[in-house]
Design a binder for these strands. Structure first.
Length: 885
RNA sequence: GCCGGGGUGGCGAAAUUGGUAUACGCACUAGACUCAAAAUCUAGCGGGAGCAAUCCCAUGUCGGUUCGAUUCCGACCUCCGGCACCA
């Protein structure tokens, strides 16, 4: 054993040995209980960042912990390797996206290996490889057969100059991010997955997840799905060319969640894209036409986040009849009504809806209160109009509503909906905010959608035996124009699988990368299957995922899509459960200190600034080295542009992977933000060095440790054993509740106790050796999830066996309650709830014994002398509280 | 605006879910070792009073429940995150 702890030497040794022995490779084993530990797969950008390190350190600790408990652990990794950055690199630097991606994977894989993460590398997958995306296409075809994949026209952000589609981010501010040209909306035929079919189930399924998923994630998903209960009501329209589904009725259908307020409706407001506008456009006055164009133009512009638009609209001259009271209402167009939600038309009830109120105020439309607070019903029924200061949106009691007067909102909603249904002008309905999932991307670097267009046969799916539809080697990457694939004739031109005519064309759009990540963790269970996405037996054994770990930024999109995908797979009879992930852990961001100037909002690297701190670390002044100008300091998410990131590789090189990992897990609870402080890693290194030194000091003496537990232990040895077993107990409890920081603290405490146990090596008796040996082996096994390299090394030294911790079948120690219990307890004694003294008592002491001990204590006597003891509260082995007057 | 989660030393954070508030670590201070430094070890480290034993105050603020509140209840202040014309 080396005198000193050389992290790099030990780490390289064990990384090699693990790889050689396939230590972390797993197979289906029905005799063992399985545990599937999954971390969100990385995008191969080329460099690992600290967020990755944190994510994987958590997963790795849990994997080790479960392995050491005897579970058969699946802990895989792969690459979310399709997507924008590769294509951007191709556009900007002219590199081939495939080569760029493969190079990045090689680099990042090495980085992961240098961290010593316990992945089963034989199961590595990458989304951009044909053997993987073949099954994206396979699933697409299945979805299409089930009616879950369909094509429809939708509006996309479109740059007319570059002739290309833009994401919302690329179109921010209403201009193209490349050329600055004004962005337009364009109709484009796009493929969708019918996730809305599962809206209700996605909502209901959350009940099963309540225990294992963070509440904030569930509420975000709930909000996203946005279920609301209400009713559609039809308002007959006079003098309109407009025709709806039922050609006999000419009416506008509105959606409302407050049918109880319908007597307060003063108008109907429709969206700019509503069919009635198009149908009657020619008949509108010029003024109306201009206004409509204006509103449409305004809506064309992509909106900036958080921007509130002033209400606008115009009376288009049509009249609609309120079916409840036959009142004739004007029809308006309004910029605040969205075509995508409900039916694209609302009844405007200003008295009871804030938006309608604002609209009515602006255009001076009548505001009529029809819901009243219960205690004001009588008054309101007497008065005709009431000057409302703001909309009254609460539920209440109906007034000015004819037959329905006096009913509560709740009752009225139910009964009025039934009435509408009976009369045939409405129906109860549930709408969702959730939209179908658009998966078409006009991009090269994604899985081609396996559809062929034939002039004779139309839209033809690629037959399963012709999958995968492979991406060509390359394409013209200009960043302008339509999908790059459209300009690769060898790809586009094909034979129709149905009629075998030669002038068929392939779909040139590729799939959203969220498709790849919706099912990748099923693929890990059987990653080399060439016929099916996975073998049902493998999936049945390994899935669902027991613990998923990742950033909260995926709370909605990825985690909702993958839940949808699982339900669809269930309906394909590929899996037997509804929810793919039992427990979800959302980790916090890794943040660092960044330096910036306010006016220019430019950031400076650390070596270009002078930071003066007081001796407690508080910043006194921060200036730029160059010209002494003052700068500002903030703690923000690590990023290259802010120069506040640290490179994991540098950290591993300087401090060692074990130290980096231990610090990452120790410094903060996993769901909190983690402030990166290099002095903190020093602490982790010191701890590991102390462990190493301790073993170095004892290991030869420990060769004489008795095999059988001796009968006699000195008081100090008993204390050490007590601490050992208490620590074991604590750490097991912590891991079960997903706490990763406190076990490290517990291990540090244990080591402190071990160091406090002062026995001369050559004077150590059997009991001492046994106690030390027990403490040290327990410490090592419990530290393994955090710092596996050093623990393997120390285990090898102590056991003089090279087989390694897992192969030796070592298990996490189990606490012995007998030893965990103290011989003597220090019981705090309070007088009137204030701590006044402590007494020593046996853990078995009865309540009255404790009372007597407390009352006999000198310090307590001082506080009770001459006072009347009202009562004494004894919490067994916890505390005594004496209440005096 | 709506929804959700937080506020504990100089800092990251603990606290058996109503029972010794500040474990563990960082930073800092003093001492030992050293020619010196680093490393290591020892001690101290919420605020205030006192030579001291000890006492008072302190978990965002103010109230309440309780023998006892960081924990439960009410009001407020404040920070962070999500959503945003969803009818």
């Amino acid at each position: 054993m080396d005198e000193k702890y050389y992290a790099q030497k030990i780490e390289q040794k064990w990384q090699k040995r693990w790889a050689k022995n396939g230590t972390f490779e797993t197979n289906v084993d029905e005799t063992k209980e399985k545990f599937y530990c999954l971390e969100m797969l990385p995008y191969p950008s080329g460099r690992l960042h600290m967020g990755h390190v944190r994510n994987y350190s958590i997963g790795d600790a849990l994997s080790w912990y479960k392995r050491l408990q005897g579970f058969n652990v699946l802990h895989p990794i792969g690459w979310d390797s399709f997507g924008q950055p590769a294509e951007q690199a191709a556009i900007k630097k002219g590199v081939n996206p495939r080569e760029w991606t493969e190079d990045n994977i090689v680099q990042m894989r090495e980085q992961l290996q240098r961290l010593g993460l316990s992945y089963d590398w034989s199961r590595e997958i990458a989304a951009h490889r044909p053997e993987y995306y073949k099954f994206d296409q396979w699933f697409f075809l299945k979805m299409r057969e089930m009616g879950l994949a369909y094509k429809k026209m939708t509006k996309v952000n479109w740059c007319p100059k570059d002739q290309t589609t833009l994401s919302n981010e690329q179109a921010s501010g209403g201009v193209c991010w490349r050329c600055g040209h004004a962005v337009e909306k364009k109709d484009l035929a796009q493929w969708f997955f019918r996730i809305t079919d599962y809206a209700e189930e996605l909502l209901e399924g959350m009940e099963q997840l309540e225990d294992g998923w963070a509440e904030r994630v569930l509420t975000m998903q709930k909000h996203w799905i946005g279920r609301s209960e209400g009713a559609f009501v039809e308002f007959k329209v006079q003098s309109s060319k407009f025709k709806v589904e039922d050609e006999n009725s000419e009416s506008i259908k509105v959606f409302t969640t407050r049918i109880d307020t319908i007597y307060g409706a003063n108008s109907i407001v429709v969206a700019a894209e509503h069919p009635i506008i198009k149908a009657n456009f020619d008949d509108f006055s010029d003024e109306v036409k201009t206004k409509i164009e204006e509103i449409r133009a305004e809506l064309q512009k992509p909106k900036d986040y958080g921007e509130e638009i002033e209400k606008d609209g115009i009376d288009i001259g049509l009249k609609a009849i309120n079916p409840f009271n036959n009142e004739e209402l004007p029809v308006w167009i309004g910029n605040y009504v969205m075509m995508e939600y409900g039916s694209g038309a609302v009844m405007s009830v200003p008295a009871h809806d804030e938006r309608d109120f604002e609209f009515a105020k602006k255009f001076d439309l009548p505001i009529r209160q029809v819901i009243s607070e219960p205690h004001l019903v009588h008054e309101h029924q007497q008065m005709q109009a009431l000057a409302l200061e703001q909309a009254f949106t609460e539920k209440g009691v109906l007034v000015h509503s004819d037959f329905w007067n006096g009913k509560t909102s709740e009752d009225a909603k139910k009964e009025m909906t039934e009435f509408a249904e009976k009369q045939g002008f409405g129906e109860g309905a549930i709408t969702y905010r959730l939209r179908d999932w658009g998966i078409s991307r006009q991009r090269f670097w994604g899985a081609p959608i396996p559809i062929i267009y034939c002039d004779s046969c139309g839209e033809v799916p690629v037959p399963y035996d012709q999958l995968p539809v492979e991406l060509p080697e390359s394409a013209p990457f200009t960043g302008v124009g339509e999908s790059p694939l459209a300009r690769v004739p060898e790809f586009v031109n094909t034979v129709c699988p149905k009629c075998e005519k030669e002038d068929a064309r392939r779909e040139t759009d590729t799939m959203d990368t969220f498709v790849d990540s919706s099912w990748y963790y099923f693929r890990y269970t059987d990653p080399h299957n060439e016929i099916l996405p996975f073998d049902p037996n493998a999936v049945n054994y390994w899935t669902p995922v027991d613990q998923y770990i990742g950033g909260v930024d995926h709370a909605v999109m990825h985690l909702l899509y993958t839940r949808f995908w699982t339900k669809a797979m269930r309906d394909m009879e590929l899996v037997k459960f509804d929810e793919p992930v039992k427990k979800l852990l959302t980790q916090g961001m890794v943040v660092g200190e960044s330096y910036y100037s306010d006016e220019h909002s430019t950031y400076f690297p650390e070596d270009s600034v002078n930071i003066k701190r007081d001796d407690r670390g508080k910043i006194l002044s921060a200036t730029l080295k160059e010209d002494d100008s003052p700068i500002k300091v903030a703690v923000e998410k690590m990023s290259k542009s802010k120069y506040n990131g640290v490179d994991p590789d540098d950290m591993v090189l300087i401090y060692g992977a074990d130290a980096v990992r231990i610090f990452t897990l120790f410094a903060a609870p996993v769901e909190n933000e983690l402030v990166w402080q290099e002095t903190g890693i020093d602490g982790a290194v010191r701890f590991l060095q102390r462990v190493y030194r301790y073993v170095n000091n004892w290991y030869s003496a420990l060769k004489n440790t008795p095999k059988v537990e001796p009968d006699e232990f000195s008081p100090d040895a008993r204390k050490l054993r007590q601490k050992t077993h208490q620590t074991i107990k604590r750490i097991n409890e912590n891991f079960e509740t997903g706490q990763f920081n406190t076990p490290v603290a517990a291990l540090m405490e244990l080591l402190n106790s071990m160091n406090d146990f002062k026995v001369e090596l050559n004077a150590a008796n059997e009991g001492d050796l046994f106690a030390v040996n027990e403490a040290i082996k327990s410490l090592i096994l419990m530290l393994t999830p955090y710092a596996p390299h050093i623990c393997e090394e120390l285990w090898e030294i102590l056991t003089t066996s090279e087989e390694g911790i897992l192969a030796s079948n070592a298990r996490l120690p189990i606490a012995d309650e007998h030893w965990a219990k103290a011989d003597e307890l220090e019981i705090p004694v309070q007088v009137n709830g204030k701590l006044r003294s402590r007494v020593l008592a046996s853990p078995e002491a009865t309540n009255s014994e404790l009372e007597n001990l407390a009352l006999a204590d000198d310090k307590i006597k001082e506080h009770t002398n001459g006072k009347q003891i009202v009562k004494i509260i004894v919490v067994p082995s916890r505390l005594v509280n004496i209440v005096v007057k």
